[in-house]
Every structure is written in structure tokens, then in C-alpha cells.
Design a protein around this nucleic acid. Structure first.
Lengths: 136, 136
DNA sequence: GATTAGTTTGCAACTCAGTTGCATAAACTT
DNA sequence: AAGTTTATGCAACTGAGTTGCAAACTAATC
């Protein structure tokens, strides 16, 4: 638990039992998960608590959210150093076969030349296709 | 109406009064609009009919949908030649001030080097920031 | 260690976008 | 005109996300 606690406190989140559990589950995941995915990993759980936990985590930049177009927002851990600035952002991938959403952490979002007088705060880029696992 | 009808029939959509109206409204828009935006442009309207009209239009590639992260999908007209293939796609912009979503039709989505064995079908790229209109 | 103040959790209940089923109306077919 | 297909309108539902409030917990102080 020590490790989990440190991760929380280093992001200025009070470590409660609930938050440790949620962070541990998120750490285990190889893919981004939604609020209801998370809910189903508990035998008995309250959606609202999990919802607020995720909100807190996101606010403190422990996790980031991905709108993959499925209608349910997905969440995944940020890297230690992540500040969720445009330069920290990476591409996400949604597999049309397995329906999973991955961080392509190594692929930064390419920069774009916007029209004059437009300023950027954030970019969401989701590639949809078939992942290597599902491509035979 | 002749013009509107032609646009519909050329995309294999039977021109009904309802569809002509919806297409005309969509043509007038300078920005992408949601189902409820559309609904509000009618004095008396049925959400479901509009919903199905949009679905039909999208299926026939007369319009395309944009998930801008606001929770409501936006729709905008496709170009005449658009087949909604990856090479037809462009970047979208969501203004955090005026809350409007625009097509940046001239900015194609940059191509990405995906990891080995990943294949692409579609890409959604939404830049959030402040548009030229709102940047003083 | 009891008292208080602040934070977190759990429950109920709600909003809002999107969706389905079914019955009526309109448009095509022969 | 009768029958078939397609489009429209209404009611009702789903599912994600959200808010308010009260109970439980935590931390800080006496």
C-alpha cells in the first residue's frame, strides 16, 4: 500500500481505502476503462463514489480521460511526469474488434497549423481500427 | 427546392419535405450542430424523426458526425466529393469560449505511424482552444 | 479521549442524449 | 384502388453522467 499511498499523496490526494483500491485497479489495467467497467470490478460498489474518485484523480492529473466515441469516457493512468499539457498528450487507439481503448503513449499528437488567431488548449485524437492483437 | 432535392437524390436519399427542411437548415449553418440544436430550430418537431433523418444522412455520407467531447454529437455537411474515408477527413475545432464546433475543412488529419500490425479505419481529431472570433 | 470542523462516502433521485417499438400516415407498385 | 414499402410521430426506455443531502469517517484542537 505504501507505494500506492505515495502516488496519491505526491499528487495531493488524500489516501483513503477507496482511493487506494481504485488506483490499484487502474494500475493493473492494460487498457483504458470506463466508470461502469470500474464499477463491475467491485462486488459491492457505489457508482457515485467511483465517479467522484475518478474526477478527483483526473483533476489532480493522476489519470487522464479519453473520449473514444463509444459514449462512455475511458480513463487511464498518466505518466509520472505528465502535466496533461498539449506536449504531454499522446494518441489513443480504439479497436473495432475487441472494443478496447489503448494509450499509444509513445505516439505524440502531431502538431497542427491552425488558422490565424486560433489558440490551442487541448487535443483529442482517437484512431479507430484493428489492433495488433485482433489482426490475426 | 430543386437544388436540395438533387443533393438528396444524388446521395440516394428519398427527398421528403422533412428531409429537405433538415438539409436546408444544415446548409445554412456555419458550425456543426447537435440533434437538440436542430430540434430547437423547429417550432414543432419530433426529436426521433430528426434523429433518424440525421442517421440516414450520415449513413449516406451527406453529413458527418463529430464527437467534440461535450456529450452531444455534432453534425456538419460533407463536401460533395466526400466518401468519409480517412483521406477525406479533416480536423475539427471546439472553441472553449463560444462553445461552437467548426470543421477545419482545409486541415487534413496528419497521418500517424501506428505500431506494427495496427490498421486504421477512421480518425477523430478535435482541437480545443479559442477561435479567431473569440480571440479578441 | 471527547469535541468540533472538514472531508469522503453512500443512497436516492434526476438530467439529458440517444434509442427502440409500435401505430399511423405517406409514397410508391402493380 | 388494393397492397406493399417507407417515413413519421408518439410513448416509453436505456445508460452515462450528475447533484443534493445525510451518515461515516478523518484530522485537528482542546
Amino acid at each position: 500500500m505504501k507505494d500506492t499511498d505515495d502516488k496519491l499523496t505526491s499528487r495531493n490526494i488524500k489516501p483513503t481505502a477507496m482511493r487506494e483500491l481504485v488506483l490499484d485497479i487502474l494500475t493493473e489495467q492494460k487498457m483504458a476503462i470506463s466508470l461502469s467497467d470500474l464499477e463491475q470490478k467491485f462486488h459491492k460498489s457505489d457508482k457515485v463514489t467511483l465517479y467522484r474518485t475518478l474526477k478527483t484523480f483526473e483533476e489532480k492529473k493522476l489519470i487522464h480521460s479519453i473520449d473514444d466515441g463509444t459514449g462512455a469516457i475511458k480513463y487511464a493512468l498518466c505518466k509520472e511526469t505528465c502535466q496533461c499539457h498539449p506536449e504531454d498528450l499522446h494518441v489513443h487507439f480504439f479497436c473495432l474488434k475487441c472494443q478496447h481503448t489503448f494509450c499509444l503513449s509513445d505516439i505524440p499528437i502531431p502538431s497542427i497549423n491552425l488558422p490565424v488567431n486560433f489558440s490551442v488548449e487541448n487535443i483529442n485524437m482517437v484512431v479507430k481500427g484493428v489492433c495488433s492483437n485482433c489482426n490475426d
